[in-house]
Simulated assay, not measured.
Amino acid sequence: MNLRPALLTAALLLSANAFANNPALSKDEFDQLIAQPFKATHGKSGLIVEIHLKPDNSAVARKGYNDIGTWRRNGDAGYCVRWNKQRVEERCTNFVKQDGKVLGVVPPGDVTWWIERAE
């Protein structure tokens, strides 16, 4: 019996749960971060996208992925967006803190993005 796939799966589940237990950004921290475009780096692929969630609920993605869409707030420290090119259901992300960094977490608690201010 090969235990390697089972151990890998267990490690991934444990790491996802560990990230899910990190504290969310406060509403004020989230508002400050999204007041200007922010940079999101995908954890697996390394793709870097600059995202701007505008006050009129329009969303713009540029650099590594170019698209426009609409967004809405999802709680104090999260948002849901529907991109025009993808034409699929809304995708929601919540921001949490870990070791002084901001992470983008998608349901069911998987960390997918590293978030920072755009330069």
Rank of each mutant, 00 (worst) to 15 (best):
A59K: 02
F19K: 01
T41M: 14
W114A: 15
L13S: 02
D28W: 06
Q36C: 11
T41H: 08
N21H: 14
R72V: 04
D67N: 10
R4M: 12
D76I: 14
S58G: 03
L103Q: 07
G104I: 03
I115S: 03
L53W: 01
S58R: 08
K63A: 13
S15A: 09
G100A: 05
G78H: 02
H52A: 15
R91F: 08
A16S: 02
A77P: 03
P37T: 03
F19R: 01
N2H: 05
K27I: 03
N84C: 12
Q98L: 02
E116L: 11
L8T: 14
D31Y: 11
I68K: 10
D76A: 15
T9R: 14
N66K: 13
N74W: 12
R91V: 08
R72L: 06
L33W: 03
K39H: 11
N2M: 03
W113I: 15
G43Y: 01
D56I: 03
W113R: 13
I34C: 04
E50N: 14
V106K: 13
P107T: 08
L25S: 04
A77D: 00
P55M: 14
A35G: 04
G78F: 02
W83D: 01
T41C: 15
A40F: 00
E50I: 14
G109N: 00
G78V: 03
L7E: 08
K97C: 04
S15L: 04
R82V: 12
T41G: 10
D56L: 06
N22A: 11
V60F: 12
A10E: 08
V49A: 07
V111K: 12
Q98S: 03
A11P: 04
I68Q: 13
H52P: 15
V88H: 07
D76V: 14
A10W: 06
N84Q: 13
Y65C: 09
N22V: 12
A6R: 10
S58T: 13
G64I: 05
P107K: 10
L3Y: 05
L53P: 09
T112M: 15
L14P: 02
L8C: 11
R82A: 06
R117P: 06
D67R: 05
K39E: 13
P5C: 07
F95G: 10
D99R: 14
P108C: 09
P55I: 10
A20E: 00
Q98A: 02
I34F: 04
F95C: 12
T70G: 07
I48C: 12
I115N: 05
T93F: 04
A40T: 00
I68W: 05
G104V: 06
D67G: 14
P108M: 07
R91S: 07
L47S: 06
W83T: 02
Q32L: 09
W113S: 15
V102H: 05
G64F: 00
R91G: 06
A20P: 00
V96P: 03
N17Y: 01
A11E: 08
P5A: 10
R72I: 08
D99I: 09
E116V: 10
N21K: 07
D28M: 05
N17E: 01
M1L: 15
Q98P: 01
L33N: 09
V96T: 00
E89S: 09
F95K: 10
E119Y: 00
A20F: 00
K101E: 03
P55D: 09
I48Q: 15
V60Y: 08
D99T: 07
T70E: 08
P107F: 05
R62C: 05
